[in-house]
Amino acid sequence: MRAAVWNARAALLYSLGGWTMLGAMIHYSFGGGGAESGEGPENESDPQANQATHKEIFTRETALGLQVTTVVTYKDVQPPITQLLRRVKSFFDSNDSSSSEN
């Protein structure tokens, strides 16, 4: 009997955590809760707002003498859950610490 009660409580806690995480991901992805919402001065120091891009340019020449150029652009995109966890972590970190310590 005690095992069934423990199992029910664990299932309730697990489902509550899962739905909370899913709701937070949806909120920050589509609801405008992320860096895209223009919340003001927080975006200036937010590392997620200044994501770096990296371009690679490949050029090759075909048999007919035509030149084909391919540009591949990589953007450092992180999943919404990582963005959410970094925001939560930055809430608890003091503003005096530098980013090189993290």
Rank of each mutant, 00 (worst) to 15 (best):
A35I: 05
N43V: 11
M21K: 06
L13H: 14
I26F: 12
L84G: 01
V68N: 07
E42T: 04
G38A: 10
T59N: 04
H27V: 00
N7P: 00
G65D: 08
N43H: 05
N50T: 05
V88D: 07
D93K: 14
A52I: 11
N7V: 04
G17M: 09
L16T: 12
V71T: 15
T82Q: 04
N95G: 00
H27L: 08
W19G: 08
M21W: 12
S29D: 11
S45P: 01
I26N: 06
M25H: 03
L13K: 13
E61Y: 14
N102A: 04
E56V: 10
T20C: 11
Q48H: 12
A49V: 03
W6N: 05
E44G: 03
Q78F: 10
F91Q: 01
E101L: 10
D93I: 03
I57S: 02
L85A: 07
V77N: 06
E42F: 11
T82S: 07
S94D: 15
F92I: 11
R9N: 02
G40C: 01
T73I: 08
I81K: 06
L12P: 01
L66I: 05
P79K: 07
H27Q: 01
T73A: 01
G32I: 02
T53V: 11
S37C: 01
R2P: 01
G17A: 04
G34E: 13
L84V: 13
V5C: 03
L84D: 00
